[in-house]
Structure formats: C-alpha cells, structure tokens
Amino acid sequence: MLVRVLLQLTVVVAVMTAVSTAAVVGRDRLSKTRREYRDRLKSAAPITGILAISLLFNSVAREIVPDLSWMIGWEVTEAFYNIEGGFVLWVQSYATPVATTYFSFVYIYGYVFLLVFPVVAYFALSDTRPLRELLTAYTLNYTLGLLCYVLVIAYGPRNMIPELAEALLYDTYPQYQHLTRQVNRNTNVFPSLHTSLSATVAMFAYRTRDVYPKWMLAAIFLAVSVAVSTMYLAIHWTIDVLAGLVLAYVSITLAERFVGRWSASDLIEEWPLVKRFAERWESLRR
C-alpha cells in the first residue's frame, strides 16, 4: 500500500516538476545549467549534506520524539481548542466534494511539488545563493520544528473533536495515512510544517520574483492552498498554521545570515582538517 502511494506520488510530482521546469525555467537557463552544473553542485554541496544529515537525524529522532515528549512535553490540545474555538469548523463549513478533492491533492501532491520545484528552479540560476539559502531554510524548518514537537504535545482537530471536525483526508482517501504516518505522528501538530515549508518557499518565490515572476504567483497560490488545506482537512489548528508562518519567517531570516556568514570556502580555509579533506577529495576527483 505504501509502495503504491509512494510510486504515485513520485510520478505525479515528477510530471508536475518537468512541466513547470519547461514553462518557468526555460531553455536558456537549462542549457547554461548543463555547462555550469559542476560548480553549482560544488557550492551547494555543503548545505545539501547538512540538510541530508538533518533529514536522516529527523527520521531517527521521530522514533524517540513521542517517548521523549510524553515525559517532558507540554500538553496543549485543550488550550488550543479553547483559544481558537471553532475556526477550523468554520473553514470546514464550506466543505464540498470538489473542495475536499482539491485540498487533499494539494496537501499531498501540491506540497511535495512546492518543496521540490524551487530546488530545481534555483539550481538553474548561475547565482547559487538562493539555492543555498533555500536549503538552509529547509534544514532550519525541520530542526526547529522537531524541537517544538518534543516540547509541545498537541493533537489536531480531527483527534479532539471528531464529531465536529471531519477527518476528510483519511476518511476519503485512507491510503494517504500510510504515507503521512511515515513522516509524522499525530501528536506533532504544533507548528504545522506543511505551512512553514510552504510559506518558506512562497517567501523565496517573492524575493526571486524578478527572475521567476510566474513562479511567484503559483507558489503563493499553492502555499496559501496548503495552509488552508491543513485546516480544511482538520489536521491542524489555526494556531499551528500561524506558528508555521512564524517558523518560516525565523528560518528564512536565520538562513540569510548563515549563508552570508559561513561560506564553504571560508570553512575550508579556517579548518585545517576540512581543508585537508577537501584537497584529498579534489585530488581523488582528478
């Protein structure tokens, strides 16, 4: 079941990315990329490595986070419900079969596409800084998000008020729960990483609007859809979505600073061990 869902996801996102690349990135940038990809890869390699490590760490940590947070975490489900009352219910009051299909699609496919495509699009730019910043911001989103998950135990609306907030996604398309439970636990709702990562992408798209004007519009539209979908599908509270926006902002601001401050070449100069490693790597490649 999981394999089928994953395959479907891969195919759909690959198609979406290919079409968007053709439409947004354009032939010129792609052919230039073919010539420059080595250098770009090299400059993006350190942060890609860090992101990969943090994702690996995340997948391991996910196993222990629930145990840890039930020992030290702060239970806030009831508080969230009391604070925001029925906002999610209000969103759900506009439920139609078409909207459910749309938001379910956006929550699964739209979201993954939103994360994958800018990596491709920014890789196609000679200036690797947006790419490096984006990957740094992803890393920060995941890492800070995980920290919040340890400290805060919260169940989403579908778990707290099932009689009011329908679990639209999982009741309509139960197969997707096989996928989402691989990457998340039902106590990890604060903040909404769907929202924070989508907002991160949208904010980057806004910054790079001169290069990719069409992408900005698409990204903002998709990011808003993803944020709404998390509430529409009763997976997140509004508070989680707002916290997601804050996390996105924090991640981008920090990413900007980090990328400016520590470039890989400085690192190589300053750390003899790293330098030696880099030299050996160079000699091996030749």
């Binding site: 039930w70 239970e75 009831e78 169940y155 707290m160």
Partner: peptide, 25 residues
C-alpha cells in the same frame, strides 16, 4: 471515546461545572 467525553464535558459545562477533555496517547 473522545466524542462521549466531549458530550459529557458540554453537559457538565451546562450544569455549571468547568470541564476540560484531556487527550492522552
């Protein structure tokens, strides 16, 4: 279970008892 708990909490509130529902794994 949580739905029964919510119903009970609502009715307790109605009769003047503050009630909260505490979700636990």
């Amino acid at each position: 279970s949580v739905q029964i708990a919510n119903l009970l909490a609502d009715n307790l509130e109605t009769v003047g008892i503050d009630a909260s529902v505490n979700l636990l794994a």
